[in-house]
Amino acid sequence: MDLIGRNKAARVAHRRAPTTQAVAQRRYRCTYTPRDALGHLNPSETGAAPFVQFRAVNAAEALEIALRVTGCPVIEATRIEG
Rank of each mutant, 00 (worst) to 15 (best):
D2C: 14
D2R: 08
L3C: 10
L3S: 12
G5P: 06
G5A: 14
G5V: 08
R6E: 12
R6Y: 12
R6D: 14
K8T: 09
A9T: 11
A9Q: 08
A9N: 07
A9R: 07
A10D: 06
A10E: 04
V12R: 07
A13L: 12
H14K: 10
H14P: 05
R15M: 06
R15N: 02
R16T: 08
R16Y: 02
A17D: 08
P18F: 00
P18C: 07
T19D: 03
Q21V: 04
V23P: 04
V23K: 09
A24P: 02
Q25D: 13
R26C: 15
R27K: 12
Y28P: 05
R29I: 11
C30F: 01
C30G: 06
Y32C: 02
Y32G: 01
T33Y: 03
T33N: 12
P34Y: 04
R35H: 10
R35F: 09
R35W: 05
A37T: 03
A37N: 06
L38S: 07
G39T: 00
H40C: 15
H40Y: 07
L41D: 05
N42T: 14
P43M: 09
P43H: 15
S44V: 09
E45R: 08
G47P: 07
G47A: 15
G47M: 10
G47Q: 15
A48S: 09
A48I: 15
A49M: 13
A49W: 10
A49E: 07
A49L: 15
F51V: 04
F51S: 14
F51Q: 14
V52H: 01
Q53L: 08
Q53C: 11
F54E: 06
R55E: 10
R55P: 02
A56E: 00
A56N: 02
V57P: 01
V57T: 12
V57F: 06
N58L: 08
A59R: 02
A60N: 11
E61H: 05
A62N: 00
E64Q: 04
I65N: 03
R68C: 10
R68E: 03
V69E: 11
V69H: 06
V69C: 09
T70S: 10
T70V: 05
C72Q: 00
P73C: 09
P73K: 04
P73E: 13
V74L: 01
V74H: 00
I75W: 03
I75P: 00
I75L: 15
I75T: 11
I75N: 01
E76K: 13
A77G: 05
T78W: 06
T78A: 14
T78I: 15
R79N: 10
I80D: 15
I80A: 08
I80C: 14
E81H: 15
E81L: 15
G82Y: 04
G82D: 05
G82Q: 10
G82E: 09
